[in-house]
Simulated assay, not measured.
Amino acid sequence: MSRTRTLRVDRIACTGQGLCAELLPELIDLDEWGYPVLKDTTVPDRLRAHARRAVAACPVLALHTDDDRT
């Protein structure tokens, strides 16, 4: 059984500060108002550390990662 890490944004909590896109530009773009748009919700192994850093840096705790067992 392997694990897939997925990325999600709590759009209600997000205030559009854009730090997540600065720390994880491979997976996150910003829309015209500065809110995150996920390019892909699956976090590749090579970006797991970057994703953890982006989640930890979110000032309003709106960015999350989840482990899915497949």
Rank of each mutant, 00 (worst) to 15 (best):
A56F: 05
D68P: 00
I12W: 05
A51L: 08
R46G: 03
T42I: 14
A21S: 15
V55N: 00
V9Q: 03
D29E: 12
Y35W: 13
L61Q: 14
L38W: 10
V43Y: 06
R5N: 04
A13N: 08
A49V: 15
E26S: 10
A56R: 01
L30W: 03
Y35H: 12
L24A: 03
T4H: 05
T6V: 13
P44H: 05
Q17I: 01
L24K: 07
R3C: 03
D10N: 15
C58E: 03
G16K: 10
Y35A: 12
H64M: 05
W33G: 02
W33I: 04
P36A: 06
E22G: 11
P44E: 02
V43E: 00
D67G: 06
L30T: 08
D66S: 11
Y35N: 07
L19C: 02
T70P: 13
P25E: 10
L19N: 00
R69A: 11
D10V: 09
R48H: 06
P25K: 05
V55F: 07
L23G: 00
A21E: 07
M1D: 15
D68V: 15
I12A: 12
L19F: 01
D40Q: 14
T41I: 10
A21W: 04
I12M: 07
R48T: 11
R69L: 15
A51M: 04
D29L: 04
R48G: 02
S2N: 11
K39D: 04
A57F: 00
R3L: 14
A62W: 07
P36S: 09
R48A: 13
C58L: 08
M1I: 15
H50D: 14
D31A: 06
L47D: 06
E32R: 14
L30K: 09
G34T: 11
A62C: 06
P59R: 03
R3E: 10
I28P: 03
G34R: 10
R48V: 14
R53M: 08
L23T: 01
I28V: 14
L19A: 01
H64V: 06
R69P: 09
L38G: 07
P36F: 05
V60E: 13
R5A: 11
R46A: 12
D67F: 12
L19M: 09
V9F: 01
D10A: 02
T42Y: 09
E32D: 15
V43A: 01
T6I: 14
R11T: 15
I12S: 08
Y35G: 07
L63H: 01
A57Q: 03
T70S: 14
D67R: 13
L63V: 04
T41M: 06
R48Q: 12
P25W: 10
I12E: 14
S2W: 05
D29K: 03
D45G: 07
L30E: 05
V37S: 02
D45K: 13
A13P: 13
V60W: 09
C14Y: 05
D67A: 15
T42A: 11
A54G: 06
H64C: 04
A51I: 10
D29H: 07
S2C: 07
C20F: 03
V60A: 01
A13S: 12
P25N: 09
A56N: 02
T6F: 13
L19Y: 02
E32H: 11
T65D: 08
V60R: 03
L30D: 05
L38R: 00
T42G: 02
I12F: 09
L30C: 06
A49M: 08
G34F: 04
C20Y: 05
